[in-house]
């Protein structure tokens, strides 16, 4: 089955909880022993988009991670076939034993998802696959304070959006009682 993230920019107030939840779940650098200001790999980061010509929405935020693409460019260009798709959740993963750190993937990726730690090898959002196998949600989803990041099988996340829209058309409040099947 293919799982996917869905991001609702209307519910992101840039609190950054998703970033730190991700770093904590994967124990990412920078660690406490390092100099403040050093940058570690950031599997997820909240990007600020400004538009001086839009007085209504001069600023908006998008929390970005790996899109786990259906046809991943990173996978296509990887010379050592280190990038593969997990069959259970459809996560695009990297086998760090095969990765040689050539960075082709980061040149090919349109979303800036591949990250590199001090060992030079690629690492990135893995959908928190260990958590998924325990029946949990990805750390960023579980900790998203505004409820902007959703996750599930692609059919379900789209269905939830339709159910929410249907409620709004009828001016019914949430939680959505509509069922999309």
């Amino acid at each position: 089955m293919q799982y996917a993230f869905r991001f609702d920019s209307r519910r992101c107030a840039q609190c950054f909880a998703c970033e730190v939840a991700c770093k904590s779940a994967h124990d990412l650098r920078p660690h406490a022993q390092e100099v403040p200001g050093t940058q570690g790999p950031r599997y997820r980061s909240v990007v600020t988009v400004t538009d001086p010509d839009n007085p209504v929405h001069p600023i908006q935020y998008v929390s970005m991670a790996c899109m786990h693409c259906g046809s991943p460019d990173c996978m296509a260009v990887c010379p050592t076939k280190a990038i593969y798709r997990d069959p259970e959740f459809g996560a695009v993963l990297v086998d760090r034993n095969k990765c040689i750190g050539c960075r082709y993937c980061s040149w090919a990726c349109e979303f800036g998802a591949p990250q590199f730690d001090r060992d030079g090898l690629m690492q990135k959002c893995d959908m928190c696959i260990d958590r998924l196998r325990e029946g949990k949600q990805p750390a960023c989803v579980e900790n998203c304070c505004g409820g902007a990041i959703k996750f599930g099988p692609v059919e379900q996340v789209e269905g939830d959006v339709r159910a929410k829209a249907a409620c709004q058309v009828l001016k019914k409040g949430l939680p959505a009682k509509a069922l999309h099947s």
Partner: peptide, 13 residues
């Protein structure tokens, strides 16, 4: 909290 790496990373200055 300026000394906390995970936090400082998001707003270094």
């Amino acid at each position: 909290r300026r000394t906390i790496p995970w936090l400082r990373e998001m707003q270094p200055e």
